[in-house]
Design a protein around this nucleic acid. Structure first.
Lengths: 352, 352
DNA sequence: GTGAAAGCGCTAACAG
DNA sequence: CTGTTAGCGCTTTCAC
């Protein structure tokens, strides 16, 4: 037992070389399955690798190659089922392309997001996929732009590639569905997890539909910790007031499913039946909306398509593809379920 | 414009040194905020870093230090809300301790899991947190054991640290709740996402309660793609048959919430009311179970406690703590909600 | 206090 | 076809 004979925690390429009786580079050649290596030596190396439990050190390789096989994924909130489903797909697609995935959960918080991105940049990730983006600050954008390939999925920024759903059209479909049912007082609900780019489009789609039908927009609702709040109003507004008060809202279009589900919950706890007294439409198409108990009418984003296109684009950029930012749009589907119905006679259905 | 003046994509410590007019090591000292550096030089370095947009290369640092600041997290299925919530907490806790998180979604699949772990090992992650574990194969376990700190959260293996909920007690509580309500035909439902260690404990707790009450165990149900299936039976059993058939099951204890929610859904689609004709209890305490529309009675695992203890333990091991595997147990809470009620007169409540 | 020098484990020319 | 060599960007002794 000489000192050297102690099995190292992580054997190196040199340990393998010694054991196999070849040189470092031959081992390297075998590992990277490069062409010219005798079968004999190849086998010897393979054996040594097996016996030693050798595993190439990705850090070392990535340092010399000056590029990693890690994709950074910035996600809004894993506790939001839709986000989790998207994150799952991103991990899956990245893994399928040989990339490890480093996640950062931002909770819509700017500082958390910045810190997460910083870590990714220090790790020299090959690229970053944004499933949500809130950065207001220039510095971050500056350090991102040009330094690392970036693609936005389900959200977008003019300076990078993006794959988005046809949000404006989706919101229009949702609103028209409500309009078609006879609703005339339709509120728009948003919360902190809806990225601003998506928000704008969805709001625009909602307004499009109303304008086309010559219906006055309903109140803008924002979900806060204490419940829904009418925009421009300092305090939370009890849901009863929104539905039964002077506004007489008969339907709500929520710009994401989570908001719609929360709303459903608080509305029914307040004794207001859905869709009896209030119709609700969501946006995203989270799996949970399909449960019979929830049965939320929603606009489904094609999750697989989004992630597939996004990953593909990112990988292409990593591989060196150049050119101006590319924006891909995928279509959405309105899924009509049990949370929407014609307004009840008592508080809706009349002209405004 | 000499060749050298081109701003490199990623400036190195040497670029900073040149710009600040100091040596490499001084820059390094500043970056790591080590003691002996003149304020003057420190400022000069800070300025150069700022101007260059320098960001230390984590790969290089980790290579020389021979340890990374990356924690690997193995998760079962991000589409399972409980798993996603746990994953979120892991990322949060890791980030709070200065670690980046590398995720691997296994879908309960052995090969996927093995591949994910392999990638983590090649990246020399500081430690691995298993939120789910399915590996049957020895080789994997061997390469894990001793090479990298491992902690299991919500599942366990005798050869490594673990933090688990009091699963056996939890299952007993759930079953006793059902028993207390008057149920005598209580089925046990499991699916592919319940790790085997948790499964064993939960099944034991269920049996404990029944044995203590001298009630015969109900059928073992396994959720398959086509719906619930009675164990030992080759084909899927229609839910109607389970409830209305000879077994006359009046309640089901599902060993995870996802299974319970799926069951709820298929049962009600079949026209069998819950809890009218069938009571359902879940396990995990996923946030979605609290929605009024779902209102699933469940056994809540203390998610924060689990992850906190797990992360703490892992970090301690990374820091060099030695000693035999440590098993921590945290308590659970039965949350009684609307999915359970006394059995209806027509098909339950009698002795068996 | 600061700089010079020696690697961390690997890849990628480049000779033999 | 195989071995030798020169780094990748950083930390870390060790002299000055």
């Amino acid at each position: 037992m000489t000192r050297r004979s102690r099995m190292p925690e992580h054997p190196t390429i040199l340990d393998v070389a010694r054991r196999a009786g070849v040189s470092k580079s031959t081992v390297s050649n075998v590992i990277r399955s490069s062409q010219g290596v005798t079968d004999e030596k190849r086998q010897a190396v393979a054996l040594a690798i097996e016996e030693l439990g050798y595993r190439p050190n990705a850090m070392a390789r990535q340092l010399v190659q000056r590029r990693t096989k890690i994709i950074g994924a910035v996600v809004g909130d894993l506790a939001n089922p839709f986000h989790a489903e998207m994150a799952k797909l991103v991990e899956q697609q990245s893994a399928a392309r040989g990339y490890a995935t480093m996640f950062s959960n931002t909770l819509g918080d700017n500082a958390t997001e910045a810190a997460g991105i910083e870590v990714m940049l220090e790790h020299r990730v090959a690229g970053i996929i944004f499933l949500a983006f809130s950065a207001r600050d220039r510095p971050l954008r500056a350090s991102l732009n040009g330094r690392v390939p970036v693609v936005f999925i389900g959200c977008s920024e003019p300076w990078a590639d993006s794959v988005v759903a046809a949000d404006r059209r989706g919101a229009r479909l949702a609103t028209e569905h409500l309009l078609g049912l006879g609703h005339r007082r339709i509120a728009f609900l948003v919360n902190e997890l809806v990225e601003k780019s998506g928000h704008r489009s969805r709001l625009a789609g909602y307004r499009d539909a109303l304008a086309r039908a010559r219906v006055r927009p309903g109140p803008m609702l924002r979900w806060t910790e204490d419940g829904p709040q009418v925009a421009g109003n300092g305090r939370p507004t009890p849901i009863e007031e929104i539905v039964l008060g002077p506004e007489r809202v008969t339907a709500v279009f929520s710009s994401n499913d989570l908001g719609a589900i929360r709303l459903l919950d608080s509305v029914e706890r307040a004794g207001i039946p859905v869709p009896g007294k209030l119709s609700v439409v969501g946006y995203d198409g989270a799996a949970v909306t399909a449960l019979s108990r929830i049965a939320l009418t929603t606009v489904a984003q094609p999750k697989e398509d989004l992630v597939l296109a996004g990953t593909e684009t990112l990988v292409a950029r990593v591989a060196g593809l150049s050119g101006p930012p590319r924006r891909q749009v995928v279509d959405v589907t309105l899924l009509v379920r049990g949370s929407t119905a014609p307004p009840s006679r008592s508080n809706g259905g009349r002209r405004n």
